[in-house]
Design a protein around this nucleic acid. Sequence first.
DNA 1: ATCACTGTACTATTATACTATTACAGTAGA
DNA 2: TCTACTGTAATAGTATAATAGTACAGTGAT
Lengths: 129, 129
Amino acid sequence: MWFSIDFSSHTPVYVQIKDNIKASILSGKLKTGDYIPSIRNLAKDIGVNINTVARAYRELEIDGVIRPQRGEGYVVVGVQSEQIREELKDELLKLLRKCKASGIKQNELIEVVKKVYSGNGGEEFDTES
Amino acid sequence: MWFSIDFSSHTPVYVQIKDNIKASILSGKLKTGDYIPSIRNLAKDIGVNINTVARAYRELEIDGVIRPQRGEGYVVVGVQSEQIREELKDELLKLLRKCKASGIKQNELIEVVKKVYSGNGGEEFDTES
DNA sequence: ATCACTGTACTATTATACTATTACAGTAGA
DNA sequence: TCTACTGTAATAGTATAATAGTACAGTGAT
């Protein structure tokens, strides 16, 4: 499957699932009309309980990102791209402040940014859905 | 007091307390030999329970960052500065990958970095302990 | 109709984060 | 000594994340 879950993170698994699916849509890996994995399949792949995935999907539905089709699965509706990017940048802002307060130099951080964008250091995704 | 807690975050409060104190030491706001706030005082200031602060302090003691002095309080011992900075940069790396995967451009991120380091957007700390 | 898949719903249980409360022990100062 | 502060410890209760299991209902293909 296309993403991995960090079980040692304090971020709940269902939130990580939501984030991953939103990111996949934003990056174009998932398009409007695509089917995402069934609750049972994804739960099996990730190695978590059905209910955990169900919660993630339920909340994504509330957010208007996906739509359930009983008997068939969940279909991608779309995302508020700009809004999600702003959320990500907000999160980044907080972390950067911590970095600054810890004495990390601006140059070091810009280097990290460049490292991520210079080919490697990026995603380890598959191309199929 | 010198830091604020994000109660809406999924990061546990006791972890946020640990991070904040480590960061304060790294940035020089707290020096070796300084006393940090008493468990009861900090708990009252933040608005959390004594046990929550006690847990943070206990773990900081295990990490060798502070040392308890019964009847007096906790004293700063020191931190493995470089190690903590590397941990922060690792965290940053993960977040940057998410940003990249979501289609945020490199320039935007560098702008955010510069914004943080250009005076405002930084800390809202007091200088006293 | 049957089968195999979908989503949906519910209950019970465990682990963790946090709160609330009480108590005890060490230290410093009036 | 008394008082007021420190850390330490233990118990009980609540909320949430996640697990486990079961059951029901809709859809599509054979």
